[in-house]
Design a protein around this nucleic acid. Structure first.
Lengths: 161, 161
DNA sequence: TATTATTTAGAATATTATTCTATATTTTGA
DNA sequence: TCAAAATATAGAATAATATTCTAAATAATA
């Protein structure tokens, strides 16, 4: 019975991924339950690893990090050693929010958040370009931010995962 | 004096973006303050828009959404109307987590999360490819997820924003 | 330097989280 | 199908936290 989610679990997850400060009391009200089962279900979902973490999402612009840039990277070689060295260095850059190894005409796709275009130039010159494994790089400077959500589409799931 | 962040504010934001369930009591301890000023600073940061929202980040894999795909999109035309129609449709797709208008050899860069490659094929055939404004598309299938954080690098900021 | 505005500490109160017990419900296997 | 076992629930009780309030301390201003 471990690791099965019913509809109540999915609703709890969905509510929490939209607002994790909702009280168990309010959750219980929405679910027509008392607080105890809701509380225990949440603890179970946490313990079994369905919930990675609870975070505050900050306003990048207000904080002064106004520029997002995606970078497609092609390495010089593709041995395991190359990949690992590249990843280690990229992971150390605080500007890098996401890094995926991908198929297609890039080896990696990075998402970078920093103050502005100048900061981006500096980042490339003083950090990214110093990675010896680096081959070609293609930048996609964000001109306008569209949709940007962290909430997964739980409704699409056939329940009982 | 409105809209200026001092080091205490930045530390609060940094702690909250790593774990927003920390109690004001624990925050206060870390900051060598009593709970009142911490509580009031948080409320101020919320009211002034530095904090967008508090969310639970779920484990995509465990929930059954195992595939991330980035899609570079080029539109057929670039009138305002084209852009708006494209954005409206893309925003309606629950699979789309992020959408940026970018410079470079794509007009838009999308990040998609769904169950698997089959679901991706279905998404492209039944949703994405139906957008009439769509020109070329290039997919980057995530092979391996590397770094993936939501915490901004507040230490890089010269304080007093 | 005196006045005003902010920030803070500490106490008091309101709410919520968490635990506990007993009951109800579901599941399982004979 | 039925009874035993396991699981989930409600409701009460307790522990902890959030939130408010008052007064003192600090910083800003003219």
């Amino acid at each position: 019975m471990k690791g099965k989610l019913d509809e109540i679990d999915l609703k709890i997850l969905d509510l929490l991924q939209n607002d994790c400060r909702i009280t168990t009391k309010n959750l219980a009200k929405k679910l027509n339950l008392s607080t105890t089962p809701v509380f225990e279900r949440i603890k179970k979902l946490e313990k079994e690893g369905y919930i990675n973490k609870y975070v505050a999402l900050l306003n990048e612009r207000k904080i002064g990090l106004k520029q997002t840039v995606f970078i497609g990277v092609k390495l010089k070689g593709h041995t395991r050693s190359y990949l690992q060295k590249f990843l280690a260095q990229v992971n150390a850059f605080t500007e890098v929010m996401e890094c995926y190894q991908v198929s297609g005409n890039f080896d990696f796709l990075l998402k970078i958040v920093l103050a502005d275009i100048d900061a981006y130039e500096t980042f490339v010159q003083t950090k990214l370009s110093l990675i010896s494994e680096l081959g070609n790089v293609h930048s996609y400077i964000a001109i306008k931010k569209g949709k940007n959500i962290t909430t997964l589409d739980l409704k699409s799931l056939q329940n009982s995962i």
